[in-house]
């Protein structure tokens, strides 16, 4: 029953988020601040993880297909497919659920605990529009982050492949161009947009509706990470089934 009630409250929150818009001059600044916090602030960790995971994917592939019958360019092909289809959109989103999601939950949760949300409501401001809508708009730039993750993942794979001596640069480049299906990029970005929506709204929901004090802010951050991750994994399965099979 609690789950159903929470699902209902979540959809009501989304509807409320679009009502009674905040003055554009104020909203513009909130969006820019959230782009800085959520998008620009994530580029460092995303770049670091993507580059090295790309390298690890390449090494693992190269070590596990060590047969003279398998062409050397397969390493590049497998790395591209892993990075573009799953690693960048899905697993990077789970990492972002930890980084961006817990930031959103704890910042909104702290505002709830310290009555800052009540202060907005007393002033007649739609606090959901003021707090959640800019995050939703900022995270619509999330595909930009994922593009960088894709590029750096493939670049990291190339570095590991060439400098690790698993295949030549030419073979790797042939591999990443082999059997390229443009729809795979579209599929990856459709997933990214859906996950961006989850990343903006689920942590906001857990922060906005939390009750209690500082300890509960921590608990809400953990719960929001768990639920965001679970929903990303579930929707990843559904979207893959719908779009690729």
């Amino acid at each position: 029953m609690t789950y159903l009630s929470n699902i209902g409250a979540y959809f009501l929150m989304i509807a409320e988020m679009f009502r009674k818009p905040t003055k554009w001059s104020v909203m513009k600044q909130l969006i820019l601040k959230d782009i800085d916090d959520l998008i620009i602030g994530s580029l460092g960790i995303v770049s670091f993880i993507s580059f090295f995971v790309g390298g690890v994917v390449t090494i693992q592939t190269a070590l596990n297909v060590d047969s003279p019958l398998i062409p050397k360019y397969l390493v590049g092909f497998a790395t591209r497919q892993s990075i573009v289809l799953e690693f960048a959109p899905t697993f990077m989103s789970i990492i972002m659920a930890g980084k961006v999601g817990s930031f959103i939950t704890s910042s909104i949760g702290t505002m709830r605990v310290t009555e800052q949300i009540d202060a907005l409501e007393v002033m007649g401001i739609n606090s959901l529009n003021y707090l959640v809508f800019p995050k939703f708009i900022a995270l619509m730039l999330y595909p930009f982050v994922i593009s960088i993750a894709m590029f750096l993942g493939i670049l990291g794979g190339m570095a590991a492949c060439v400098y690790g001596g698993f295949s030549s640069l030419e073979d790797y480049i042939v591999g990443i161009q082999t059997d390229f299906i443009p729809f795979h990029i579209t599929y990856a970005f459709i997933k990214t947009i859906v996950f961006a929506f989850l990343l903006a709204t689920i942590p906001s929901f857990h922060g906005y509706y939390m009750k209690g004090g500082a300890l509960e802010v921590g608990k809400a951050s953990t719960t929001s990470f768990v639920w965001t991750s679970v929903l990303i994994i579930l929707l990843n399965y559904l979207l893959t089934q719908m779009l690729l099979s």
Binding site: T110, T114, A119, M123, G124
Partner: peptide, 21 residues
């Protein structure tokens, strides 16, 4: 009308509730 009325209300919260950003 409620929104207009709220704009005429000032509130001092127990913990001040200043926006910390």
């Amino acid at each position: 009308e409620k929104r207009n009325l709220r704009a005429e209300i000032g509130m001092v919260f127990q913990g001040s509730a200043l926006f910390d950003s």
